[in-house]
Design a protein around this nucleic acid. Structure first.
Lengths: 112, 112
DNA sequence: TGCTTAATTAACATGTTGTTTTATTAATGA
DNA sequence: TCATTAATAAAACAACATGTTAATTAAGCA
């Protein structure tokens, strides 16, 4: 059933405030390792490791620009979290059914 | 900024397939530790610890019924995950803005 | 070439997680 | 009271996570 090995890595990556802060920063756009490290008191290797964890989980992708290795958000992994969460939405969200119907009809419109 | 200690525990709890499967089972309703343990090959103490992790993270609550300690989902923690996720929704979901407007208007209707 | 900047690797200390087996607590019911 | 069932606690241990400092790779530039 629920044995998707990827979700393990994604949730584990999200279970750290430094890594969530890095993701939050990347919403504003690509950034180098040093740029991402700046707000933290932590050493650069520590941030480098956090970035590796995010990359392995698929939450970010990395590019190349001279010595720089710019990081960018990967929407796919975030969407995976959202999809997992949506499974539970009806438990608390009384508006879920209505929203679900609306989204479905939007999709129908797109496909029609 | 993003220093909510609770999200750490919630995401850490979700980073394990056994614990996610337990949550999935609890959608069907309350269950005792033994009932929850049945589908797994793991020892009972191991499941007991997983349940403790879920409880500490606030993802489940526990009751008392004779020797039984029934577990139930706690929507609040799941909603917390959804709220975090929703921060990123606009990154991939082109329908996010429309949905957001719809939900806001629904809320207005409720409050009016 | 040699210097500087960006980033990773290596080696290490320390703490946490996931699991086991064995022992214990606590409630039920004959 | 004694046996049974439900669940937790305790002790042990391997594996992994998180951070450090020091060393290394790699690109850019004088």
């Amino acid at each position: 059933m629920d044995s998707s090995p990827n979700l393990d890595a994604v949730f584990a990556a999200l279970a750290n405030p430094t890594r969530r802060a890095i993701l939050a920063r990347l919403v504003a756009g690509e950034a180098s390792v040093n740029t991402l490290a700046a707000p933290f008191e932590m050493s650069l290797p520590a941030i480098s490791k956090h970035i590796r964890v995010l990359e392995t989980a698929g939450l970010i992708t990395r590019g190349r620009d001279a010595q720089f290795r710019p990081c960018a958000l990967n929407p796919d992994a975030l969407r995976q979290v959202a999809n997992w969460t949506d499974q539970y939405r009806h438990i608390w969200d009384v508006r879920f059914d209505a929203m679900d119907r609306i989204l479905k009809s939007t999709k129908d419109t797109e496909n029609g």
